[in-house]
Design a protein around this nucleic acid. Structure first.
Lengths: 229, 229
DNA sequence: GACGAATTAGACAAGAGTGTCTAAATTTGT
DNA sequence: ACAAATTTAGACACTCTTGTCTAATTCGTC
């Protein structure tokens, strides 16, 4: 009967578009109204889709919510790893390169739509879905922090920095780069490009005052660091 | 007729106890379930009070919520200012004293029941009550950050630190002291005393690497910069 | 112990939201 | 253009919640 035995289910073209539209709208609404405050009609309206379609795709409100969180976690992780891969391993201008990296991290991962949504959902509903957010913790922070720490360790090993504990340094780097954005984050706002740059600049300067290699011991005649072999 | 013309209304003894009990329970429940997810019966049960009593005291759910946030804001501010007043103006051991201060700040203000609740309510509902949280912003961060910055400025002026911008330094101090607690905060957890101490210790050490006064100017012949006049 | 105020349990109407169902309309692949 | 699958609007039963009301009870004070 079925000549299309291939991948079992061959969803129509528009199907995936609807799905994506629902995910988008649901993220927005759950984030704005919290799980309990969100209602399906709101999401349907925002997605430009009928309520029934949402039930067809996701079953019920809770399953939809879980799908959203999983989706955001995945996308954010991808973004973070992509950004980590731009870490300045061989910096020409250490300060400028680290500032640029911090700005990228903030703009692409922390202030992005996905980053903001995921953060808020975790804060708001984390305690209610322990397994779901344990999963996030393992897949997210559990994998990204070591990756960032490894980059700093390499930078230190190459003689650019003077770091004892790369894990601590990585967390402090991020904390410093965000130091001036906390209040804005608290209220769900999105800092301007200028605020991000300011905070990153101040943060990286302090970071380097703490961790920059001290005068290269060897032939320190002026105060310029003659690195490299 | 009334010999007790004094403060007009003389509420019975138990009245205030009930009021406090309601505030406690409501804070807990709003925080755990979010505004939309909380229901009055839950709060009544947790407060050991009948539903009607809550309506007698506060009118409706929204007024109750606003009262909670105002109350938490006030209490947290009081705690923060009390803690700021223990800032080490004349440190005997700069590192140890700053670590102790950071720990106090974290334990009494950030990790405390009130601090945790206020933070969560602001994050979850901030966008829905712009005026209420604008008020918080003015009364809270708007007054506490300058106060902390002033203490750091004084410490720098007294020759203990080398700081250009005390406002930036104050924010970075706090960011560093909390750097290792972020993930825990995210999920609504309360870090152990040990974690708080760890994070504060690492944070303050980095802070001092960045801002401690360089070799006391006097007998600097090797590679220290002879600043000052 | 008696009075007045506050609290209580329970019923109640009104409204809102979830999830199901149906029949009609639309879209997709061929 | 046809057949199958998907989407749609609307009605629906059901549950939950808010906020009000009443009558009985408890509490604090004298």
């Amino acid at each position: 009967m079925k000549h299309d035995v291939s991948p079992d289910t061959i969803p129509p073209r528009g199907h995936e578009a609807k799905r994506a539209s629902i995910m988008d709208a649901a993220g927005e609404v759950f984030c704005r109204e919290s799980f309990a405050g969100a209602n399906i009609d709101m999401i349907a309206a925002e997605a430009g889709v009928s309520r029934q379609t949402i039930y067809n795709h996701h079953g019920d409100k809770e399953k939809l919510f879980v799908a959203i969180v999983r989706d955001l976690t995945e996308r954010c992780n991808a973004g973070i790893f992509a950004t980590i891969s731009t870490f300045p391993d061989q910096p020409k201008d250490l300060e400028a390169d680290l500032i640029a990296f911090a700005v990228r991290m903030n703009r692409n991962c922390i202030c992005s739509r996905d980053g903001k949504f995921l953060r808020k959902l975790i804060q708001a509903e984390g305690e209610r879905y322990p397994e779901l957010f344990a999963e996030w913790r393992e897949q997210g922070p559990g994998r990204t922090w070591p990756a960032i720490a490894a980059r700093f360790a390499r930078l230190a090993h190459a003689g650019f920095l003077d770091i004892e504990d790369p894990d601590v340094a990585a967390r402090q780097f991020q904390a410093l780069a965000n130091a001036e954005l906390q209040t804005t984050f608290m209220l769900g706002g999105t800092p301007t490009d200028d605020e991000v740059l300011q905070s990153a600049t101040h943060g990286v300067r302090t970071f380097l005052r703490a961790f920059a290699k001290r005068q290269p011991a060897a032939d320190a005649q002026k105060h310029s660091a003659l690195a490299g072999a």
